[in-house]
Design a protein around this nucleic acid. Structure first.
Lengths: 240, 240
DNA sequence: AGCCTGGCTGACCGAGCGGTCAGAATTTTG
DNA sequence: CAAAATTCTGACCGCTCGGTCAGCCAGGCT
């Protein structure tokens, strides 16, 4: 039995051959999609023979599943590492939104891979896998929102799932369309994801209609030096 | 010169052979993407021979471009037909959001096609075409928002493009993820797009934090008979 | 030494791909 | 009616695809 029947453990994969294949596959799949990438191309980028790819992963689709599986593993590990329970509702919301968008952007290839999978309808391939990926984040987020409702910091007449959809959708669309948005006029917020998160949270919290609080601070457009920390120093104002 | 060199006019395409091919291609491309669909499959669904497909469209990619072109034509025509200028800012916003989401849903296949195109990075294929599709809608929307700022119904310290991104992103994500969201618990708004639009506009206008206005109307969860008209009868409350 | 085992490879296979072409079938034109 | 033009098809081409297979080669064991 020369073929490795067990799925390769997600860890320990940058030095051995299987890891190189997995890495190459991740890059190519997310750049061009499943169908457009040939096993030969993966083998060439990994610096091995095509037959060797089939030696490590029985079929092309098994390799694809391994890539998706590793994506899920990484996502879970990263998000769980910053499992936050402290802070006000607003700060937790901003933290979640900022971290979610940051992860989308820094794991650009995997994000595209999963979003592409989302568009492929039907019970085919690994849709349930992407489902698991999303459900974990979604539920964790809904929990934060529920807590906000119980503490009185979030309107009780809102469906938390709708709020979650709006926030996640804004982030995902920002990610999907940023190459397009960059070419539009009227758009100046593409390069700084933090500014987008700030404005998103601001809009979600206060709405877009004029209020006495917002009518006076007119020029927040100047790009100051508000950087580095994700969401720690930006919530000086507005608390409770 | 047997081949039709000129691109087929988008209209007049359900009876003649070229139209049948175009229709079949639109369905298959949007279901499975460009690479996963063979010309043979398109020909079979259209009920013609493969060679006949190449008789009407010189190459496979020319056929793909024709499909995208027709999508843009239809989108422009439909959206321009309801070019609204009357009503308050809130109603115009709700109208735009509702119509945008309705079009996403009713033209499901084409929407998926364009979103998939959006995920394929690089200067390849017809990305600039999708760019044109989006830019038209985006600018029209930003114009509505600018008008709201000038009339004092929208905060002047907000970047209109950010507001547009949030709203469009919510709709697009609702569309993309609705098959997934349906399987989640905590989610009960998937089947009725109108309810989602209502809550989205509500959140955008008023924010998610408790206000005296919203603290009393607790149970909007019951699914009444609020249907049929897109956004005409729903703005009885809240005006200026 | 011999041998075995597992990672690895070049050569190969059948299938299906996008695309071509000569010519049949049909319609238009004179 | 016949001729010309157009629409359409079956057979075919070169090519690449996912996948297979016999065997090479290095290292560990006895």
């Amino acid at each position: 039995m020369p073929r490795s029947a067990t799925i390769r453990t997600p860890a320990s994969c940058t030095c051995d051959t299987g890891g190189r294949i997995l890495l190459a596959a991740e890059q190519l799949f997310s750049e061009q999609g499943f169908d457009a990438v040939s096993v030969n191309a993966i083998a060439m980028r990994a610096g091995v023979s095509k037959a060797n790819v089939f030696h490590h992963f029985n079929t092309k689709i098994a390799l694809y599943l391994a890539v998706l599986l590793r994506a899920r593993h990484d996502a879970d590990a990263h998000l769980r590492s910053l499992e936050c329970g402290e802070g006000t509702f607003a700060t937790r919301l901003a933290d979640f939104a900022g971290n979610h968008l940051a992860r989308l952007l820094e794991q650009e290839q995997l994000s595209r891979l999963i979003l592409r999978e989302l568009l492929t309808i039907g019970p085919c391939r690994a849709q349930q896998l992407a489902e698991h990926v999303f459900e974990e984040n979604f539920r964790r987020f809904v929990l934060i929102l529920r807590a906000g409702q119980e503490s009185g910091e979030l309107r009780r007449d809102l469906d938390p799932a709708v709020v979650a959809t709006i926030l996640l959708g804004a982030n995902v669309f920002f990610f999907e369309a940023k190459t397009l948005l960059r070419h539009f006029r009227d758009v100046g917020f593409v390069e700084t994801a933090e500014r987008f998160t700030d404005m998103l949270i601001d809009i979600l919290l206060h709405g877009i209609r004029p209020t006495p609080r917002h009518s006076h601070r007119q020029p927040p457009r100047g790009s100051g030096t508000t950087r580095n920390t994700t969401a720690a120093s930006r919530r000086d104002r507005e608390r409770k």
